[in-house]
Design a binder for these strands. Structure first.
Lengths: 133, 133
DNA sequence: TTTTTAAGTGCAACAATGTTGCAATAAATA
DNA sequence: TATTTATTGCAACATTGTTGCACTTAAAAA
């Protein structure tokens, strides 16, 4: 995790390390508001820029669910700006409201006549492991 | 289309009819900016409230793709606030950048151990019928 | 290790987007 | 047509995101 910034060729600053550490403490996607709560003090603008560059460099990816605050999670594999290669679905639990990136081995394939599908993103809602009892 | 507002039990005002007519003229999802362009003159607040109530009543649904303006499209089937029952995927063409709701007959099913999946939303990117030549 | 260069940060100011209370107005109902 | 209920528009505000510029820090070169 520490050398992730170097790997992606961006400067390793205390603030960026701190933000990255916050993502590391969660095993689910988190919104900006949680990042802000975890930071003792921070500069709003710098945080925006940090999130922006993390997205650009493929360090984190964004999960947008209609009508909700954007969520962010660390990328698992080799991602970059143009292509995020995730073999997972974004699962939002209706009860605890947490958004998880759930790994899936047999990713569904879809064919549409005359369309050329290059990428798929799947968002699911329901009950997560903890709430499905 | 005209009695859609009555069906959903909301008042049938000139403005709402006009907004609905704009959606009717497109066979793809459109962002707020296009609705605004098509309206000669309008009140920003009223438009927000109109979109909001259309969403709540299941007249339109929202399509959010990371890092992009929200898009809206008329619901095809019986939808309401809590449940949007679409048998379609949201397809964004990389070339023309238009977002389509593409009907699909065999909607994929996904099973995740210990999770209870209630709804699936699928977003695809690639080339649409027109651009895939 | 020190110097140089390049990149990141913080401030001020701004731009865009979305919301609320309230009075005026229009639509639905009786 | 009269009454009730919902919608609209204004003003004002709240939130979210952006930009230019000076200052500071990190990375690279000497």
């Amino acid at each position: 995790m520490t050398n992730l910034l170097k790997n992606k060729k961006i400067s390793e600053t205390p603030f960026r390390k701190e933000v990255l550490a916050i993502f590391g403490r969660y095993n689910n996607a988190i919104p900006l508001s949680i990042v802000e709560k975890e930071l003792k003090e921070y500069n709003r603008i710098t945080l925006y820029r940090t999130i922006k560059i993390f997205l650009e460099k493929g360090i984190i990816h964004e999960i947008t669910i209609s009508g909700e605050e954007s969520n962010y999670a660390v990328c698992q594999e080799e991602c970059n700006t143009d292509a995020h290669h995730h073999q997972h679905i974004h699962f939002k639990c209706k009860k605890c409201e947490i958004i998880y990136c759930v790994e899936i081995n047999k990713f569904p394939s879809i064919a549409l006549p005359n369309y050329k599908i290059e990428q798929l993103e799947i968002q699911a809602t329901g009950l997560c492991q903890s709430c499905n009892v």
